[in-house]
C-alpha cells in the first residue's frame, strides 16, 4: 500500500484498504482523519460513538484484528490493511451476537450512548480471555464509562455471555 502514500511534501489524501465488517473497502482518507471520524462521518456507521474524543470514555471502542482499541485515538490511514469490526458488524445472519443478546436480556443500559463501546469492549475482553473473576471483569472493563451507572447489569450481561464466547477464538 505504501506506493499510494504521498512523497515528502504537501499533505495529500491516502488510499487505504480495510476489511470493514466483513466487506473489503477501498477508501480515500486524509491523513488526519481518525478511524472514528472515518466510520461515522465518511461511511455513515454511526453505531460507534464519539464521547470524549480523547481515549478516556471508551464509547468509540471497535475491534481491529479482533483486539479492542479506541478508534478516536487512531488514524484511519494507520489501519491500512486491517480487519475492522464495529457494533454494526457483530450480528450474524442468524441474529444478534451473543454479547448483544446478553445486553438486551440483562437490560444493560439506560441512555444507550456508551453501549456500542461497552459491547465491542466486552467482545474484545472475551477474545483476550484474561478475566476469570468478577473483580477481573470489572477491572478489564474500566476503559468504558457509563454515566447512567448501568454497571451492575453490564457486568451481569458480560458474565452471562462469556461462557458462550470463550473458546470460540473468534476475531469479531
Amino acid at each position: 500500500m505504501s506506493q499510494n502514500l504521498p512523497a515528502a511534501g504537501a499533505p495529500a489524501a491516502c488510499r487505504i484498504l480495510l476489511e470493514l465488517n466483513g466487506e473489503r473497502r477501498e477508501l480515500e482518507v486524509q491523513p488526519w482523519t481518525t478511524l472514528l471520524d472515518l466510520l461515522r462521518d465518511q461511511l455513515g456507521l454511526s453505531g460507534t460513538k464519539k464521547g470524549c474524543d480523547h481515549g478516556q470514555c471508551g464509547a468509540c471502542t471497535v475491534l481491529v484484528d479482533g483486539r479492542r482499541i479506541n478508534s478516536c485515538l487512531s488514524l484511519a490511514v494507520m489501519q491500512d490493511g486491517a480487519k475492522v469490526t464495529t457494533v454494526e458488524g457483530l450480528a450474524g445472519a442468524d441474529g444478534l451476537h451473543p454479547m448483544q443478546a446478553a445486553f438486551v436480556r440483562h437490560d444493560a443500559f439506560q441512555c444507550g450512548y456508551c453501549t456500542p463501546g461497552q459491547i465491542c469492549s466486552a467482545v474484545g475482553l472475551a477474545n483476550e480471555n484474561r478475566a476469570h473473576t468478577r473483580d477481573e471483569l470489572r477491572e478489564q472493563m474500566s476503559g468504558n464509562l457509563c454515566r447512567c451507572g448501568a454497571y451492575p447489569n453490564i457486568l451481569a450481561a458480560i458474565e452471562d455471555a462469556l461462557p458462550t464466547l470463550r473458546g470460540q477464538g473468534g476475531d469479531a
Binding site: G55, G58, T61, N70, S74, S121, L125, S142, N144
Partner: peptide, 9 residues
Amino acid sequence: GASPQLRNM
C-alpha cells in the same frame, strides 16, 4: 496503567 483498549494500542 491506562485501560485495556489503550494497552492494546
